[in-house]
Design a protein around this nucleic acid. Structure first.
Lengths: 228, 228, 228, 228
DNA sequence: CATGAATGAGTATTCATTCAT
DNA sequence: TATGAATGAATACTCATTCAT
């Protein structure tokens, strides 16, 4: 007789996925806009008004497509990982079947960097704002993250099994350092041409595999000339 | 962010640096608290109320010590870099004078990681929240960041000059990838003992120098063949 | 409450009452739904979305049948009183012609309670949400309410004229107390069987007529005189 | 490492009750204002802006004293019942010790009406808006309501035990009908002098005890027995 | 006739900031 | 120096209303 719990506003396209192409389009525009804002401002700094503006809508209209700010952001972050993994996986598929585990791992790292810097705002958004996400949402998204982590871990394991990578290395630390270097590129990379995506990707791969040191100086060969 | 911004309206100790020891102490407590909050929440997510609580004060009281939220945060971030550089530099000073450029660079990277993970919330704060800082503040802080960048760059150059590192490598990219991997550790490092700071630091150094690949499997010996 | 109020902008069936049977049906469904919602949530708490959902429509579609939220609600409330009066009046009609004024009044009270609790959501809606209605609408609906008030008042007057009820009683206060007790039942009545409508109705009638006190204790006398 | 749950804004006088007299005063003003608004607009129709205005504050300032709209309202409603019960109880205390159970019950009903109409906006607020309150809050407040219900129920039981009231009557229904009639007065009572509080209260008491019917007309018999 | 989609005026809430004491 | 109290601009969110299809 008293009030009962309410919820759900007037419309509800959030529930059923069956959207008209028009609604589907706008929804995508909103997600895209959100991804770009998140990639730049991070979780806490992202305002619905900015997303709306970029998507050519009104802030209030976002609620027709998403139940809340968190819901919208969550979907962006989730897509970020999902898309990244899909991209990397697809890239591996296109390698020659006989490609070595080592080269497959290298390709994965390279594509991760490239996808993030060159292609997807979603990936950038994930990289930059996951860290500030409230615990609850964190927990919900974690599955996707873990999945990608496992995916990469398997590549590393295969490379180890293949004798391409030192099996004594802490796989987890290795992976996180590589991912970290890759994700951090979004903080300093200048898309204006100053930086070159492929060079960066290649350099990271090189770090993983052989590093940038030249064979021990002083020993082996003459090299000594450069005493400093 | 709220109200109309104004400049230095409150009392005055911010002008003259000579504070009573008690005021100096509180100021430090506030900075420490702010560093911890920033390290966890990031720039946009940091609230004065949380800082105040951690510092054992009231939010309003912060304004006796700092002109504004931005001023406080700016000082924390600036300290973050400054302290990191000071720590790394000090560590290098303690090395044997004859230490090679390569080993000096390695030590720098190692200490950067260790300082961040083990020692200083300021360093963590800088690492995690610099990216979200508004352009204005960014510009103001940039000097410190650039100074540290130059410092590292010189270490790299010396190692190159010394023949320890491939001079063909893009120094800037190399530095940012290393710093990135290091900074990103704050996102995944578990201080509960699961992760080990030194191992991580060593692994990063190893990546820089030699990578983790084992000599091309199948080809015994030729080692030297890879003269480059 | 939102936007700028306007008058009758939509289609037109609201003008001419002749609707296709289908439209008429939907209109009724909407009114029914609105009555149920109003009965539970009250005026301010009633949302078009909930009404629409219950009526199997979309909130926007309501505007084909009603010019505004207020219009819809107004009709429900008006119906609430109208129907209640019609019900009570019909019940009185079915009484034996020689029924005393006193018994007619009793029957009216009884039927008011029963109609509200057992039969009509419109009646419940009226009872529960009239009080919160904005002054303007209030004024518009008042005619119906007054009409019912007069109707009841006449029953009371007749009972007084007939010597059944103490003519010294403030008719208006009496009526409002009775109606109040009746309307308030909607707040506590449990339709789950815990409460019994007829018992409640009878008790209210008894309160009106004789109250629940036993003849002054201490004086044992006529007792039996009370044939009823 | 990720964000942790937040809460609690800057200040927190809500937690500790120790408020300076000034804060205590404002808090009371706000509660008073809220009570008045609630009494008129009901739960859903009550807006913080109106409360703030009446309390001579800004809407945002309410949050210094109360954690949320619901918290504020909850306290008002709770006070409504608590105060009513306290008032009624106090009134009973002042009765002569030998006052009969029947007269004590009558006094309780009378004071309930008077307190509500004449004295306390809190009581009116409770009476008018409890019905629309969301289930959660309802549950929380229910203790107070039940306590008052029990209090009244005991009075009824004593009157029954004393032979003053027909023990065959459903105590719960009786109580709710009486309370209902009393609470509903807030919907129609005109404080402008048209209505008279004491008359209304007395009439309700009379309804409870003896009703307003005159001994069955037409049948000449005991008539005189009823000395009263 | 119906609805999917959008709008925009509000409403509760947050939080940096102020200031009298 | 500190703080209790307040302010007000900004932000997420709601909901009646509109309208093209």
């Amino acid at each position: 007789m008293a009030s009962a719990p309410r919820k759900r506003p007037a419309a509800e396209p959030r529930a059923g996925q069956k959207l008209s192409p028009r609604g589907e389009l706008k929804r995508t525009q909103i997600l895209d806009a959100a991804a770009e804002v998140l990639a730049v401002r991070g979780f806490a700094g992202t305002m619905l008004s900015e997303i709306a503006e970029r998507a050519g809508t009104q802030a209030g209209s976002l609620y027709y497509h998403f139940a809340s700010r968190e819901d919208l952001i969550e979907e962006v972050l989730r897509r970020g990982v999902t898309l990244t993994m899909a991209h990397v996986r697809a890239a591996l598929t296109e390698l020659a079947p006989e490609t070595s585990a080592r080269d497959r791992l290298a390709a994965a790292i390279r594509e991760h960097v490239r996808f993030q810097l060159d292609v997807s705002a979603y990936a950038r958004a994930s990289a930059r704002s996951t860290g500030q996400v409230p615990a609850e949402m964190r927990a919900r998204i974690n599955r996707e993250f873990r999945r990608y982590g496992v995916f990469l871990d398997e590549l590393i394991m295969e490379a180890m099994a293949d004798g391409a990578i030192d099996p004594g290395v802490d796989r987890s630390a290795l992976r996180m350092l590589l991912i970290g270097a890759a994700n951090w590129t979004t903080e300093w990379f200048r898309p204006d041409g100053t930086s070159n995506v492929d060079e960066i990707a290649d350099l990271l791969v090189r770090l993983m595999l052989s590093g940038v040191a030249k064979p021990k100086p002083g020993r082996r060969l003459p090299k000594k000339s450069k005493v400093d």
